[in-house]
Design a protein around this nucleic acid. Sequence first.
DNA 1: GAGCGAAACGGGGTAAAGTCCGTTTCATCG
DNA 2: CGATGAAACGGACTTTACCCCGTTTCGCTC
Lengths: 206, 206
Amino acid sequence: MDVPFGKPPVERADAARNREALLCTARAMIAELGTEKVTMDGLAERAGLGKGTVFRRFGTRAGIFRALLDAEEQRFQAAVLSGAPPLGPGADPVDRLIAYGRERTHFLLARQDIARAAVERKGPVPAGGPVFTQPHIGMLLRQARLGLPDPETLAFQLTSALEGPPLVFLSMDRSTAEQRAERCQGDLGALLADGWQTLIERLAGR
Amino acid sequence: MDVPFGKPPVERADAARNREALLCTARAMIAELGTEKVTMDGLAERAGLGKGTVFRRFGTRAGIFRALLDAEEQRFQAAVLSGAPPLGPGADPVDRLIAYGRERTHFLLARQDIARAAVERKGPVPAGGPVFTQPHIGMLLRQARLGLPDPETLAFQLTSALEGPPLVFLSMDRSTAEQRAERCQGDLGALLADGWQTLIERLAGR
DNA sequence: GAGCGAAACGGGGTAAAGTCCGTTTCATCG
DNA sequence: CGATGAAACGGACTTTACCCCGTTTCGCTC
């Protein structure tokens, strides 16, 4: 029985350089064309690299966007895992749930285009987000001791309620959402965050 | 100002015949290859028609699956709009909410492959489902007079909690879900239905 | 600083969705 | 019936994600 990964065989210098170049070019293209128009060929050409390289680096189109989100996602998760309460550990679980949802809503909404482009269209879960969100919500639900029959499943559904709107269901033409936001004199983020809070508070019987 | 559609210019005979043929062929191909492997070219060829015809008929790949679901979806909606309580009108709104979610869960799960293939990967909402589900949930939430600050947004999020798992988030390799189902000695449908019920009951303060 | 194995690169190749437009077929009306 | 305009058809064409594999570069070792 051997240790699987003694060292994650450190990335080669050229590879690292190219990844930077690609991410940088990607950001530029997104800024000037929008995520829709970023194509693998286009990106490769504009970065002065081969198409094969792009795929080797990111595996899939969505992979590029995931990579772009990665640094921020790390910071977000760090804030949750070891930051200040109520988002971080230490606060009451229900308060943490509320804080998590509010924060996550704004996080996703602020990066909606890229986040949406980062969801893999085939294969497993919309990667990245849910992978962290679901277990976290599950843990907090259990800690909160709300007498729920099946916290796991509920965590699954709450994850969907939280990330679904920004990631998937909000793909409805933006107008609908924005219209409602205007009618309610609040931005969409606030609406969703408040909705989440309501959901959790009721769930907790407050 | 003229009346927009005096008559929805009745479908031409050949068009109707071809649509049947295509739907029929599609069903056959799904049964024997799975939804993944159903391609527009393949379908056209196997039905002995041109590719252009397939697109004219269904607009998009997802459109085929939507068409396949359509009849059943109609029946489902009819049961909700004018069937027997508690799914249909007449029962207490909260009971209707619970019934709706339970029924919808099973409906979607029983057709998961096709339902998933029917979601449009670009453009507006995952068509079909949410378009009906969201307003319906919204209506029931309002009727229930639960003192919710913003039933509309909540309806949006609950729709995501309800349809997200079967349609999107459950794309996680089936194993995960099934493992949990086994561990909990219940099928996934029951788990999700119970989860939904819990969510609504707590929301209603029961 | 030359050799070597592994990793990265490049870009042509494939498959599948979706578009276009010239041709064919249908339903209607004289 | 036969003409006629609208709708449907077909299949070549375009675009893109993703694959493959021969070639190049890197980093290490002696």
